[in-house]
Design a protein around this nucleic acid. Structure first.
Lengths: 133, 133
DNA sequence: CTACGTGCAAATACTTTGCTGGATT
DNA sequence: AATCCAGCAAAGTATTTGCACGTAG
């Protein structure tokens, strides 16, 4: 893949944050550095980088697509009340493997079918649990 | 909530299939029974039924929103190659509870934070595994 | 040098909204 | 009777695409 200035910039922006940025946000950041960049270019590069496995795409109900450039494997969780996305890192790194095998056993699917780092857990976040009293 | 003829029809269509229909598909089915129904009405009713907890919304990368009216708790899995969605039912019903507690332990979140039936597992389906050789 | 990337504007796809009249409780 | 719902058309939002030019490898 050719790494144009624009593509490198988009990648470094997504890698440089853990806020799960939207395309629009990446575009705004990119314009600070390169005012002539176009929104379509940002979209095209986000798609190209997802395709190349350099970043991940997070698609979740009520949200525009978001992107994640963090390299260490982790899950995401979305609150079904407020829609908020958060990162979930396993307490012990090796537990991610164990978790996968429990999931595969539970549903009777093969170990190679599940990618924990791409999985979206959903539930109710602590803030929303509190306000539901 | 008032149950108009249109709303009841939309509900029965979503309840009557396990194919995770899109709004468009529900609309086409609904028109067979009630040709005057409008697409906006279908969207409004799908949203109302999701809000009332009568059906679930499935949002996944590369797909339009889909809906699920199946009442027994199950997970969904999306293939990260072809995008296909499938239902995952636990081999033993009570394993869903055990699975949830393993997940919560792994990430150090509370038991009430996770709703398995709303969670989207992701990975590679058997068909795609095969064709990747 | 050539394939691929860019910026712009227009197009697309899906979903929501405003309005006026109609149905439900 | 009062409130909520329907149908239609128009608007909105997020994202993609066509095209002529530019640039990385």
């Amino acid at each position: 893949m050719k790494y144009s200035k624009q593509r490198s910039l988009v990648l470094s922006i997504v890698r440089g944050t853990d806020t799960h940025p939207s395309a629009e946000w990446v575009y705004e950041q990119a314009r600070k550095e390169m005012p002539s960049i176009g929104l379509a270019t940002v979209y095209r590069n986000l798609n190209a980088l997802v395709g190349a496995g350099e970043i991940d795409r997070l698609t979740a109900a009520g949200n525009v697509d978001r992107f994640d450039g963090q390299l260490t494997e982790h899950c995401h969780m979305q609150c079904i009340r407020c829609g908020k996305l958060q990162d979930l890192y396993p307490i012990n790194k090796e537990d991610m493997e164990k978790l996968r095998s429990v999931i595969c056993d539970t549903f009777g699917v093969g170990d190679k079918n599940v990618r924990m780092g791409r999985t979206l857990l959903r539930g109710v976040c602590n803030d929303c649990l509190k306000s539901e009293q």
